[in-house]
Design a binder for these strands. Structure first.
Lengths: 337, 337
DNA sequence: TTGTATGCGTTATCAC
DNA sequence: GTGATAACGCATACAA
């Protein structure tokens, strides 16, 4: 088992200097070399099964075709399709994806970023950002935010149209005759939680509900336990609600169990809506009315943006917002009179 | 914005030569250097925020601390916890994880392996193997199989105890009085499908069922559509079955819908069992009786095995089999008499 | 225990 | 259009 062939071996076989072989093999510099020699080199490379040593290339060029993806936890069902979309988008451009989980811990995130940067990662796609985060003095490395974003507009991002989704849901509930609608919101420091909350205020007032008829309770996290607790708090204060707009699907499922505890039926007594359309919420009992996000496309778009960013790092930061879709199922019904 | 500090910068600041700094920073060679200088170097490194350039290190040492994980599709709910377990296990050892999806296409898999190998990947963890696969002349790169394995024992693997799980399920059904139990099996060319199928034959005969009372139908894939079709075929031939053991949870859910189509209730007319205990199958209607696999631990164990393998590549290949657990829920009930 | 010298494989710069 | 050369940052064989 001898060592893998190097560019020197290729050059020798083609009867040229290593530098020439390098130029011939690199699409960007191919033009500098005679077509015939270029072909000879390509032929030799193929014959030898030559594959460039990317460590050497990275060392020399200070970049690589590897991107880092950082998510809170891959086990949260929204992330697999996003990551898959990113991976597909990256791979088409010849990039590979490093994936890391932070569990929402900024310390872990820093460690991961450092570790990845040390491996010459060409760029980052972060699904972990908080509204207040800033990359000002931070990464000279191209970075794209996905799913969540920061408040400042300095970093490119790909998110779903949270506001439109909430408007769709509120209108749907109002159309069903609901006049007292509560919101179990996600954390305020995440753009997803915050945007949906703001849109809820917006939509309810613009549809003529008094603030007292549209109370809000914040969950500490986008999880079932946090959602459960928040739902109980909401109904303790506002027992007369006939509908709940949950910050995401997991919170909506928590509403199911909390309402069952309170002896209320869904949707008989209370209508419930989610956000995300995670796998299997269509098979819950009752099937969840929610807003579908194009998670896979969000991922692909993020990959596209990152590649753009790598190609031209100084271009102004784009913020892409992808459309969402209302999915009516069985967890919403006419308001009880 | 100046360049990242190199080991030279660290050495200079500590007043030593780069070689000494290198030895001081590397745990393996730390012993060769005076404790006081070692501390001085470490201090300088910390002050400068030094992170070794892994491209240079890889070039020099011909290895890297990056491992490749290859799965069919991250969106299949069994993989996220496995990948998460792997990532956690790798990271504790300072390794990063490259993740790629193949959609079950061997061609894509080859491409990914080549691409990753070209980037000095230190090892691979594959969740994509088929029974007949062989790595004989293949990868000199350390490799571990996870979830699935090949028939030959040449490659280390971490799998769940499929046979024990099936025995648990069959005994559970027999205890409930079922005497005509069908099996909607997964693909024969995957070890998961095959082992569960073999165990089904084994368990039913050893518990006294005639082969005719334990018919099998194979699904083309571990998916709902394939499971649906296979379930219909099974009941077309054997309408008298009172229980179905599905090859995995997705096939079990397909049994639900196929049986509903046939006008049979679950578990009133027919009991159904799954395999995996995916997220949310406890919230299906009815909640699924299934076997729980320790997916996260499977992933961690695979990472451990890979690190072992990297440390001593010639040691004999271990095959780790992790225990499973029966989870009784509402999809199984007493046999209809 | 520390310093010196060299090379890993590639590409950028400079000659020709 | 091509060749010679140097340098990317690190780790190690060897010398001191």
């Amino acid at each position: 088992m001898d060592r893998a062939p190097t560019i020197k071996d290729v050059a020798e076989r083609a009867g040229v200097h290593a530098a020439t072989a390098s130029r011939a093999l690199n699409p960007a510099t191919r033009g500098m070399v005679n077509v015939r020699t270029a072909n000879r080199v390509a032929e030799a490379a193929r014959a030898l099964g030559y594959a460039p040593n990317s460590a050497a290339r990275s060392l020399r060029t200070r970049t690589s075709s590897v991107a880092g993806i950082i998510v809170p936890d891959l086990r949260n069902p929204v992330f697999p399709p996003i990551v898959r979309g990113i991976e597909d988008g990256l791979r088409e451009a010849g990039y590979l994806a490093l994936v890391g989980n932070t569990d929402g811990d900024p310390e872990r995130e820093r460690e991961l970023l450092t570790a990845m940067r040390g491996r010459q990662t060409a760029g980052f796609i972060l699904a972990t950002s908080r509204r207040g985060d800033s990359f000002a003095g931070g990464p000279a490395v191209p970075t794209v935010l996905v799913n969540r974003r920061t408040d400042d507009g300095d970093t490119p991002s790909v998110t779903a149209d949270n506001a439109a989704g909430v408007h769709l849901l509120v209108r749907h509930l109002v159309d069903l005759g609901h006049t007292r609608i509560g919101h179990v919101a996600g954390p305020r420091d995440l753009s997803t939680g915050w945007e949906r909350y703001r849109a809820f205020l917006d939509a309810t007032t613009s549809l003529g509900l008094e603030p007292a008829a549209a109370p809000v309770e914040f969950a500490d996290a986008f999880t079932e336990p946090a959602g459960h607790a928040a739902t109980l708090r909401l109904f303790a204060e506002h027992p007369g609600l006939t509908a709940v707009l949950a910050g995401n699907d997991l919170i909506a499922l928590a509403c199911y169990s909390a309402l069952a505890e309170l002896g209320r039926s869904v949707p008989g007594d209370v209508s419930v809506t989610g956000f995300n359309d995670m796998p299997f919420v269509d098979r819950q009992r009752p099937a969840l009315t929610t807003v579908r996000l194009p998670h896979y496309e969000i991922g692909r778009e993020a990959a596209r943006l990152l590649l753009e960013r790598i190609a031209s790092p100084t271009a102004p930061a784009k913020r892409v917002v992808l459309p969402v879709e209302l999915v009516r199922r069985d967890s919403t019904g006419p308001a009880k009179v």
